[in-house]
């Protein structure tokens, strides 16, 4: 079997928050907690989760915008946080990114052509060659050639996102980090951009890390999916399996909510609360919103375990839930004292 293009091994990322006062202890938030996954070359790994799940931090580490506190992130078997300057330059050429906001991603004072050629110019490519490449990639993403001489405000949101994709493709990368690339777009345009991303992957053999919160969109593009909840990977496996036969109670709820025919109120909780990232609940983080939580969930954190080939979930009650024999005991809330400390 060929080695994966991207491999994360036990990644942690902790942020230290500024102190409340001079004498207060400094507080840390764990944004990513022991996350491991692998992305085979030419495939898409989708990461889903709600805000605060740590999925964006994951993307930023792969882009080397953040450094992990622990663990390794390997790309083509090379630890990207132990690179020589020459290796780093090569890596910058290998990986590119497309972000959510088509308005923030393009500098308002640069023409589309200059925006698209910026990564090339940073690599020292000559201006003439860069301009030719810009025209080529702009055409590739379905923009007219004359777009190069116009400013971002002259384009619609969908067109801007196309320019952002063209920019990412200009250096012939092998790996694209897509952080909610279609969330800010209108529905009809979203479909165009998703189709474009899929086409680019097929034509250029790209590898994608796709971050999203819309499950249907993630499933459209992804081969494998990881579900994150408050920093932990709670379920991971082939996209079809995870999103059609979800095992973890959290994934089950997300999938139920995403169904096109879902009635109002499928996610109704019996008074569950979102955990406070500063003092996450003991044991399983999801126990404060889970219908199946019991004492064991508060006592230890469940580890990922395999339920089908390549399909893992982290829950103590997987079998009972799957068999439908687990009683719904309601969420296990935090002690009142910790609640007040918010």
């Amino acid at each position: 079997m060929t080695p994966p293009m991207v491999e994360a091994r036990g990644l942690f990322k902790r942020f230290t928050l500024p102190r409340h006062s001079l004498f207060a202890a400094s507080r840390t938030v764990t944004a990513v907690e022991g996350v491991s996954f692998a992305i085979p070359a030419g495939t898409t790994f989708g990461v889903v989760g709600e805000s605060g799940s740590g999925k964006t931090t994951l993307a930023r580490m792969l882009l080397k915008l953040e450094q992990p506190s622990e663990g390794q992130l390997l790309v083509n078997d090379q630890d990207i946080f132990a690179q020589t300057p020459a290796e780093e330059r090569a890596y910058r050429r290998l990986v590119q990114a497309v972000f959510q906001d088509p308005y923030g991603a393009l500098s308002p004072r640069m023409r589309a052509g200059a925006i698209v050629t910026e990564p090339l110019r940073a690599l020292g490519v000559h201006r003439r060659a860069a301009d030719m490449k810009a025209a080529e990639v702009l055409e590739l993403v379905g923009m007219r050639r004359d777009a190069a001489s116009r400013y971002p405000h002259e384009f619609s949101g969908g067109q801007r996102q196309r320019i952002a994709i063209a920019r990412a493709l200009s250096v012939d990368p092998r790996l694209l980090v897509l952080d909610e690339p279609v969330s800010a777009l209108d529905v009809s345009v979203r479909a165009q951009v998703l189709a474009l991303l899929r086409e680019m992957q097929q034509r250029l053999g790209l590898t994608y890390l796709f971050i999203g919160h819309d499950l249907a969109v993630v499933r459209y593009l992804s081969d494998a999916v990881g579900v994150m909840y408050f920093g932990r990977m709670v379920e991971i496996g082939p996209a079809r399996d995870v999103l059609r036969r979800p095992a973890h109670p959290y994934t089950r709820r997300l999938v139920a909510l995403a169904a096109a025919e879902a009635p109002l109120g499928v996610a109704r909780l019996g008074g569950g609360t979102l955990p406070n990232p500063l003092s996450p609940p003991s044991g399983c983080h999801f126990r404060t919103r889970c219908a199946f939580a019991d004492a064991r969930c508060a006592a230890d954190a469940p580890a990922l375990r395999e339920i089908a080939p390549g399909h893992n979930a982290a829950c103590h009650h997987l079998d009972a839930i799957a068999a439908g024999t687990k009683a719904e005991t309601g969420p296990l809330l935090e002690e009142a004292s910790r609640q007040r400390a918010v």
Binding site: K64, R92, Q96, G104, R121, A164, V171
Partner: peptide, 11 residues
């Protein structure tokens, strides 16, 4: 974002 992207590109 555009500054982050420039950093990603190695500018």
């Amino acid at each position: 974002d555009f500054v982050l992207l420039a950093r990603v590109a190695g500018v």
